[in-house]
Nucleic acid binder design. Structure first.
Lengths: 141, 141
DNA sequence: TATTGTTATACTCTATAACTATA
DNA sequence: TATAGTTATAGAGTATAACAATA
């Protein structure tokens, strides 16, 4: 393992932990949490799918997703339809209310983050943008 | 707010959430958690300081740090010394056992992360390295 | 009165183990 | 038997409110 990698790994680990803490603590609408919002955004973006598929995309274990989906469903932000061909599964889809919540909440949360981004140079923003794509690959292996 | 910022904010928010999930779930030594390790590393790197100072650096509220420090102290990884000039505070310092735990655990966790980094191109690593510095500023405002 | 830190309490987030229903 | 999902349970992580001790 090259020493460069170990150093980068250390720095990245601490940076990600602290940046994520900030993001999580920034609650706009107290009715929805970041984890719920993230799952909702996956269903909204990728279309209707099973609970297992959402869990895989979100990188959480199935029981964690069960809980997240139960809260989204009881709030009326997603709905289930049964699958005739495999009755163990049901397909989860975002509702109209879910879309509205998602749009509003995403806008508000992004505004908070974007407000910080405007203080950054174009150079800084380029660096962040390039890192997003690499981070996604890091998280999905 | 330029639309570019809103888009970057959205992408960054989801990336950070999922990357942080991966980091947290990667437990090497089950006796120490990521939050504890992060606080320990701050005390180890920056030297002895008060509980309030550690909380500020770690970006958590004082009661959260009280809990983290209590677990670190009972494990023998930090120790307190009373301050004669201000008896409300005490100074927290890392112990020898704490240094050993920190070195070993950091190495193991970094190895896990670095193992993923070796699959990345030099270009990807440059992007991550550049982003670390920007992320730190983002988290500390 | 203001500040430092702690205690009490509660909620979010997530996991593992055990289970149910279906294939 | 294997798979999809749920229930039960527990621990990590964090916050706000109320408090105690000290300045």
């Amino acid at each position: 393992m090259p020493p460069d990698h170990a150093e980068l790994a250390s720095a990245l680990r601490l940076s990600l932990l602290r940046a994520a803490r900030r993001l999580r603590s920034q609650r706009v609408n107290t009715a929805v949490t970041l984890s719920q919002l993230s799952a909702l955004s996956t269903v909204g973006k990728c279309g209707p799918m099973s609970a297992g598929e959402i869990a895989a995309i979100e990188r959480v274990q199935p029981p964690s997703m069960t809980k997240i989906l139960a809260s989204l469903e009881s709030a009326g932000w997603v709905e289930r339809s049964s699958q005739p061909e495999d009755r163990r599964q049901s397909i989860i889809a975002i509702t109209q209310a879910g879309r509205e919540l998602l749009a509003e909440e995403t806008r508000a949360r992004d505004q908070w983050l974007a407000k910080r981004l405007v203080e950054f140079s174009a150079e800084d923003l380029r660096k962040l943008g390039e890192a997003v794509e690499v981070l996604d690959r890091l998280g999905s292996e």
